[in-house]
Simulated assay, not measured.
Amino acid sequence: MVLASSFVSAFVMLSGVNALPQPEEGALSGRVVTTSCNPGSYHNSTTTCAVCPAGSSCDGTSGKSQLCNPGSYQPNKNSTSCIVTAAGYYTNQKGATQAIACSTGSYQPNKNSTSCVDTPAGYYTNQVAATKAIACSPGSYQPNKKSNSCIATTSGYYTSLPGSIAAVPTTPGFFTNVTGAIKATPCNPGTYQPRSNESFCYGAPSGRFQGLSGQAAVCGTCCGWAAPLVNNNVNPVNCTGSKPNAWPASGDGCIATATDCVHAKSCAQFANGTCPAETFTG
């Protein structure tokens, strides 16, 4: 009976009262239980978290690392978000760690940009990271896009408006003789200029005159009238006294010798620049 009792006790111990502990769920199948990573980190394996690299963002919750999109960047590690590019800057690839400044000749007025805008003709930028294009000032111009400067007008040309794409040639009766002219200068009375884009005016020669400014031609003197024997004659002289005569457009001045023409009562130029009757434009 003692042997039987001992056998029963041994059976009870093996069958559950002091049984060995069982393995945790998943251990036998090879499955590993993981946890969420902290913000600024991500799962680099199924069991560990790693610091988020520069050029990426990691929210921690998803356990993933996301490359920054074009138009944003992140220079630092352990970041939870990317930085939107400022105006004047851009990024054009994923995973950027730095924003790129717009070069001279371009600009970008907006944030979150993937490229810069070339300056149009008539405009320029001369500094990096420009947020707007600058119009060429009067007296200058720029025919090309993507420019970092403007071109000053030369003699015979001008620009009077900002943002000009071409220099304007002076018209007959006008001139410019400086660099960067913002307007054409009219020829003074006593002078004229028959051509365009010129840097000077001609003086009215002996026998001819010009009484107005901004004129393209000169007038010949009338019969009985003379112009001084010099250049830049403004008004004709009425011949009287001992020398009452003069040939039309004569360069000899008043003379005593009679002429075949009838002395003109007036030799005034019209307000529109037309030469007086019986004279000519030259």
Rank of each mutant, 00 (worst) to 15 (best):
C116Q: 00
T279S: 08
Y90T: 00
S137M: 11
N144T: 10
P162F: 09
A277N: 10
G16C: 05
C52M: 07
N231K: 08
G139D: 00
T114M: 01
I134K: 02
V12F: 13
V262P: 02
C275W: 03
G207K: 05
T119F: 03
C239N: 08
C261H: 05
G71R: 07
G40Q: 04
A129K: 08
K111A: 14
M1P: 00
L14K: 07
I165F: 02
N188R: 14
K243V: 02
P189Y: 02
P186Y: 06
S155T: 15
C223E: 14
A19N: 04
G241P: 04
G207R: 14
G253A: 05
Q22L: 09
L20G: 01
N78W: 08
Y73M: 09
Y73P: 08
F200D: 14
T257P: 04
F209L: 10
I182F: 12
A216V: 01
S149L: 06
T170F: 07
G190R: 07
S79V: 10
I151A: 02
P162Q: 12
V218L: 12
Q193W: 10
S79H: 04
T176N: 04
K132M: 01
T125M: 05
D118G: 00
A50D: 13
T47K: 06
P228C: 09
S5W: 02
S137G: 00
T257G: 08
V178S: 09
I182K: 03
N38Y: 12
P70A: 14
S140R: 01
A258R: 12
A27P: 00
F270V: 01
G273H: 06
A10L: 10
N197Y: 10
T114P: 00
C219Q: 10
N235T: 15
P276N: 03
G220N: 14
P244T: 05
L20R: 11
G253T: 12
P236C: 07
P53K: 12
K265T: 15
F175D: 00
L212Q: 11
Q210A: 13
Q22I: 12
T47E: 14
C150N: 01
